[in-house]
Design a protein around this nucleic acid. Structure first.
Lengths: 352, 352
DNA sequence: GGGTGCAAAAAAATCGCTTTAGTTAAATTG
DNA sequence: CAATTTAACTAAAGCGATTTTTTTGCACCC
């Protein structure tokens, strides 16, 4: 007589704190304190704790995310803004981000703005309505006006309070140009990225500076300006074709990224020239398939994964410790990966 | 005297329904009804509505996401599970997904399980704790036991209630093999994908069936079994090298995807043979860079973007109409993209 | 003039949790 | 032994919406 039938409760509707408290004949407070291992729970004896844990396990109790977040005003998610879900950039950075977020029980919302002004303006608002705890901006200079912590990767965002994670572009230019210089290249074509990409300007400055130091002339006639921000090698193919139609008076080209380099190699082949015998090609990023091109690409590796994981780390740290001063800038080091697409400079035989 | 100072309110803390109601001297109910354009609001006269809208605009009122979700028990987000943030697969599918979600004011959480059993088991639970409204499974056969709507893309999930979006693999094999057959290829090498990928088995069956019909022999000695699920061309390079060391008694190879095909092409070149003069290569997927390989890849295009957008569409439909019967299977059609990597079969001169 | 119906709005319940402020009984202290 | 502490809890407020139920006038109708 008086037998309890606790399982029955689980049958009408999902389990919640109230039901659990009725079952255990304990207050919701007690259960909440125990399950959250709150400091205020230190006076609760072991046997009671055990009862709580066991019931929670038995009934698979999970605190309602909304109710909890409403109280705590913390969503345990961040917003990630990027131009697109690009192959070769987004995925690599996000691998680093993901790894770190998972450990901290965070999730992320990804939003791709495709450089459309209305999306770039809309998404931050939408994400804030979603109550994200912070922003991670990839390659995105957007002026996100927000009191939330913001970490910007390769975005060169100069809003106050934003932490920038950037590559050392001077170093990048140095290792690439030094390599070409060493191989005897003096007449080098350069490729400037799309104006819209924040890295473009900084990388270009690095190139100009290092070229001057190495006494390599940056001739306007040998410069390619990429127009579109796209992940098709086409972006490199077309202008390279045009350049080769105009002049062949150079022995190497330094590309904006590996994708465009792939297009460039293709254009060189189509023009009846060989890489690297006639023209050496240096890429940028070191995307996975760079090593599997024909010829495999010499490239400046960006530690994208590390930049992502570092970014996530800093962001979560700022979220956990809001009083903390956010670091201004974190500079990451590039690395030159030498493969087949570069070789000794061809004897210049005025091919123009 | 009695002058109102409404702006002052906006200064102490963020705006919420209570503050807005005090400002407007209206109840929270009225405001909520108006802003949500609820049917019960039809008795509220135009001038009151206008007052509400104007104040909401002026103070930039946005309903608190948690409070609203707590009441509605709808999160307006879905969980996306995939093996990884792969280049060439994830990004393309998600472009389609994103596009559709945005319009419906949905966001997504992405979770990559890397085929680790503990993650495959953990993530669905974590996502349900996040109160996602549904699941989208990419390439992931996971048994997500959940009352929520589930749409599985290329996952061949046979759990009841799951909608599968799959490619017509029979058709895929047909167009690829018919193409090779027509070019005179009779001795063809085949590549079977990693066991772990759900598509592998279905694609293989399609190949066997079509090969029989075209009287093409599938010789075990000419079959490559991919072991790893990786997005490096290495996965194709190594086994192809091994195959070429063993025998050269074939004129074409049908690869599991474009990435492995890139590795295969490389291995063929390294063996001193030419594509397509000595060996024709057919890829699968039509990733963006497929057109920019040297030689450009003939490949079976999967409409990945469309599969994503279709999947998102079905999923959101099921979420909005829970009583609706979920479609069993939606079959998408592949398309053969003929480029440079296939050509007339080399005269068989017993190269083995 | 008392019931009916409707427009316009407000009160109050509710979602499920966290947390502040107590309460009660037992143990300890001066 | 009265006063204070402490252990072990609990009641209730509050987070900020949505939604059901009520209220309040006011017009209308025999």
């Amino acid at each position: 007589m008086g037998k309890e039938r606790p399982e029955q409760v689980s049958e009408n509707g999902p389990i919640n704190l109230r039901k659990l408290s009725e079952l255990l004949r304990l207050s919701q407070t007690t259960i909440s304190l125990v399950l959250n291992d709150s400091p205020a729970a230190k006076s609760i004896p072991g046997h009671t704790r055990e009862r709580v844990f066991e019931a929670a396990r038995k009934f698979q109790y999970r605190p309602n995310y909304f109710a909890r977040s409403l109280r705590r005003s913390r969503s345990m998610s961040i917003g990630v803004m990027a131009p697109d879900l690009s192959e070769g950039y987004f995925t690599l950075v996000m691998q680093g981000v993901e790894e770190y977020l998972l450990r901290a029980h965070y999730f992320y919302f990804a939003a791709s703005h495709y450089w459309k002004p209305e999306l770039m303006e809309q998404y931050p608002r939408m994400l804030m309505e979603r109550a994200v705890d912070g922003f991670l901006l990839l390659n995105t200079p957007a002026e996100v006006l927000s009191p939330l912590p913001i970490v910007a990767i390769s975005a060169h965002n100069n809003a106050p309070g934003v932490t920038n994670i950037v590559l050392d572009h001077k170093k990048a230019a140095e290792i690439a140009l030094a390599h070409l210089h060493q191989l005897g290249h003096r007449r080098i074509a350069f490729m400037k990225g799309p104006e819209i990409i924040p890295d473009t300007e900084y990388r270009w400055r690095g190139i100009l500076q290092m070229a001057r130091r190495l006494q390599i002339e940056v001739r306007p006639g040998l410069c390619i300006q990429l127009e579109a921000d796209s992940w098709s090698p086409q972006v490199g193919y077309e202008p390279m074709k045009a350049l080769l139609d105009r002049t062949r008076d150079f022995t190497a080209i330094f590309c904006f990224n590996d994708i465009s380099a792939i297009g460039v190699v293709r254009a060189i082949h189509d023009a009846g020239l060989r890489v690297p015998e006639d023209i050496s090609v240096v890429g940028f990023d070191d995307i996975i398939s760079a090593a599997y091109q024909k010829p495999s690409l010499t490239t400046v590796r960006q530690p994208l994964r590390e930049m992502g994981s570092e970014g996530a780390q800093v962001l979560l740290d700022l979220i956990e410790n809001p009083q903390k001063e956010s670091p201004e800038e974190i500079v990451m080091q590039p690395e030159l990966i030498v493969r087949e697409s570069t070789g000794a400079a061809a004897k210049m035989r005025r091919r123009a």
